[in-house]
Simulated scan of single mutants.
Amino acid sequence: MKRWLKITLGAAALLMVGAGVYTAYVYHSVQTAANAMYHPRSIVQPAAISTLTTGGAARPAVTGNGSGMPNPAAISQFKPFTVLVLGVDQRPHDRGRSDTMIVLSVNPAEGTVLMFNIPRDTRTELIGRGREDKINHAFAFGGVDMSIRTVEHFLNHPMDYYVQMNMEGFAKMVDLLGGVAVNNPLDFQYEGHHFAQGSLKLNGTEALSYARMRFDDPRGDLGRNARQRELLKQILAQAISKEGLLKVKPILQAAGEQIRTDITFDDMTTFLTRVGPSLRQTDMVELKGHGTKINGVYYYIVDNQERQRIRGLMEQHLLTTAISP
C-alpha cells in the first residue's frame, strides 16, 4: 500500500508541476504577444484645459488645439474610461487612412458601454496640420498621434486609450472567435458575397466585406457605420465570454502584427478578467450631420450643437465612481 501511495502521490505531484509549467508557458506567451501590440502614444499638453467630472473626480477636457489628459490607469483602477478604435486599411508604401473611427465610453460600475462612429468624411480641423479636412485624413498625415489629438479636439474630450487595427487583423480575430452573428438590416451583395436580410453567421472574410460596403446602402456611410458598430458589439461580447477567454492566446498571437494599442498587458488582463464580465449592456448612438460639397469635395458636417450633445452623453455616461478592486 505504501508503495502504491508513493506512486500515486508522485504522479499527482508530477501532474501539478506539469500544469504549473504549462500555465507559466501560456501566461508568458500571452504576455509576449500583448507586449508586441503595445505602442504608447505621444502625449501633448494643451495650452489650456477645462475640467469635467468623470468617475467622481475632476479630469481635464480638451480646449485649444492640443491633446487632453488621458487617464492611463483607468482600467486598473476600475474607473470609467474611453477608447478610440481605428480601423485602418494599410497598403504597401502607404500608411493608409482610418476609414473606421469608433469611440467607446466604458463604465465598469454601471456595466455599460456607449458606442458611436465618427464618419470618415467628417470635416474638422486636423490638429498638427493647421487646416480643416476629412477627419480620416489625420491618420494619413500623422498616424495615431494626430488621429487621437484631432478626435479629442473634435469632441472636446480626452481619449484614455486607443486601439488601431488593420483590417486583416480584424478578419483573423473573427475567425479565431468562431465567426460572428449579426442581424443584417438589408439584402446586398459585395465582393462576391451575398448577405441576406436577417440573422447571419459570418466568417472573417465575410465580416470584413460586410463592414466595408457603403455605396449600395441607402444610408451610405451612416449605414456602414451602424453595421460596424453591430460587429464590434458582437465581437466584444464574444471576446469577454468564457469561450472567448480560452482563445486569448491564439487571438493575441495572430493579431499581434495587425493591432497596435497603448493598453498594457496588465490592463488587458484586468479588462478580460474583471471589467469585461461586468459589462451587460451596449448602447449605440449616431453622430448627426449633413453632407455637402466644398470646392467639389464631399464632406460630412457636424455642427457645434451636435458635438456638444455627444460630449454631454459621454460625460453623463462616465459620471459614476469606480467599482471596488
Rank of each mutant, 00 (worst) to 15 (best):
H194C: 06
H194A: 02
H194P: 04
F195I: 09
F195T: 12
A196T: 14
A196M: 10
A196N: 06
A196R: 12
A196S: 13
A196I: 03
A196Q: 11
Q197I: 13
Q197Y: 01
G198T: 04
G198S: 05
G198D: 10
G198E: 08
G198K: 06
S199E: 13
S199H: 13
S199T: 12
S199K: 14
S199D: 13
L200Q: 10
K201P: 00
K201R: 11
K201E: 08
K201V: 13
L202C: 11
L202K: 01
L202M: 07
L202V: 10
N203S: 14
N203Q: 09
N203F: 03
G204E: 01
G204K: 00
G204F: 00
T205N: 12
T205H: 09
T205Y: 03
T205V: 10
T205S: 14
T205P: 00
E206N: 03
E206L: 02
E206V: 05
E206R: 00
A207G: 10
A207F: 03
A207K: 01
A207N: 05
A207V: 11
A207L: 10
A207R: 05
A207I: 04
L208S: 11
L208Y: 01
L208H: 04
S209D: 03
S209C: 01
S209K: 00
S209F: 04
Y210I: 04
Y210Q: 02
Y210T: 06
Y210M: 04
A211R: 03
A211M: 09
A211D: 12
R212N: 07
R212T: 08
R212S: 08
R212A: 07
R212L: 06
R212W: 02
R212H: 09
M213A: 13
M213Q: 14
M213T: 14
M213W: 02
M213S: 12
M213V: 13
M213L: 08
R214N: 07
R214H: 12
R214M: 08
R214D: 12
F215T: 14
F215Y: 15
F215Q: 15
F215W: 09
F215P: 00
F215C: 00
F215D: 09
D216I: 04
D216E: 15
D216V: 12
D216L: 08
D216T: 14
D216H: 07
D216Y: 04
D217L: 03
D217H: 05
D217I: 07
D217F: 05
D217C: 08
D217V: 06
P218T: 09
P218E: 07
P218Q: 05
P218W: 03
R219E: 15
R219P: 00
R219T: 14
R219G: 04
R219V: 04
R219Y: 13
G220L: 08
G220E: 11
D221E: 11
D221Q: 08
D221N: 08
D221F: 00
D221V: 02
L222T: 13
L222W: 02
L222V: 14
L222S: 13
L222D: 12
G223H: 07
G223C: 10
G223W: 04
R224N: 10
R224Y: 07
R224Q: 09
R224L: 11
R224D: 11
R224S: 11
R224T: 12
R224F: 06
N225G: 15
N225R: 01
N225A: 15
N225C: 13
N225K: 01
N225E: 06
N225W: 00
A226P: 01
